[in-house]
């Protein structure tokens, strides 16, 4: 039986994790390498690094961070933000990423998904969708959620699967940062539309909301940022709660459920 994955997301700008960190015991709280190690110790199932910096230098710094993390942290790493070409994918994978997430660039050129899958395998291509409710269903947005591409999210998810995406990272722009819970309807609709795993993102504020993303939203994994970075919950807190609520999660071998 497959377990539900808890995936901390580190938004990195010019080499620093942003969105705020409250781990007082970390000397350098915004250090992505230290945070990655912390989350591995807490039984995080994977890690996602999103480069939100705009500059070329920020991209280079990100690759160096991934290189360092991959020498010390032995769980899967996904890198996203600014991946625009097969060459960008190759460099991220070469640095130590196991998967790459593409968003705007794939909407501009869907063949990027097919080319990446052919070259590196579908399992390393994650399609990131920034979804926002409109009068005509959900639309996929680009440029960090600022521009409407006009693409219907469900159609886009299905097309991406056909092209070779191995997984969908589904972020609700409407819920992001609200801590009011995931967009369950969006998550469920996308999860039912495709046969590849769906990672729910955006809106988590409480433990029951995380359970709902799985139980009602049919998500295979949940992405978390602020909730973890601010130290409100650890990954283990979330896993304990889910295990108590009939959701199977992974523990390291010395722990019992």
């Amino acid at each position: 039986m497959m377990t539900i994955r808890i995936i901390p997301c580190l938004d990195v700008d010019e080499g620093r994790v942003v969105k705020g960190i409250k781990f007082s015991e970390l000397r350098d709280a915004g250090d992505p390498v230290a945070l990655a190690r912390r989350y591995q110790e807490q039984n995080a199932d994977e890690l996602v690094f999103l480069d939100i910096g705009a500059s070329h230098q920020s991209r280079e710094t990100m690759l160096s961070i991934v290189e360092q993390v991959s020498q010390q942290v032995f769980i899967p790493l996904t890198v996203g933000g600014g991946i625009r070409s097969v060459e960008d994918m190759r460099r991220a994978l070469q640095a130590g990423a196991d998967k790459v997430a593409v968003c705007s660039a794939a909407l501009r050129d869907p063949q990027l998904l097919a080319e990446g899958a052919a070259r590196f395998g579908a399992q390393c291509i994650v399609l990131s969708i920034d979804a926002k409710r409109t009068e005509n269903g959900w639309h996929a947005y680009t440029h960090g959620g600022r521009r409407d591409s006009g693409r219907d999210v469900l159609a886009w998810a299905r097309e991406a699967e056909a092209l070779g995406a191995g997984e969908i990272l589904l972020n609700s722009i409407d819920m992001d940062g609200t801590q009011a819970g995931y967009d369950l309807e969006l998550t469920r609709r996308v999860a039912e539309a495709v046969n590849i795993p769906v990672i729910a993102s955006g809106g988590a504020g409480t433990l029951p909301q995380i359970r709902d993303a799985v139980a009602q939203g049919k998500a295979d994994a949940v992405l978390l940022a602020s909730l973890l970075h601010y130290g409100e919950f650890t990954v283990n807190d979330i896993k304990s709660y889910l295990a108590d609520n009939q959701v199977e999660v992974r523990w390291s071998s010395h722990q019992s459920i």
Binding site: M2, D45, A122, Q123, G166, N195, I196, P197, D220, A221
Partner: peptide, 10 residues
């Protein structure tokens, strides 16, 4: 199930 299988299993 979902294909590929991605995640932790026993």
């Amino acid at each position: 199930g979902r294909v590929p299988q991605i995640g932790w299993n026993r």
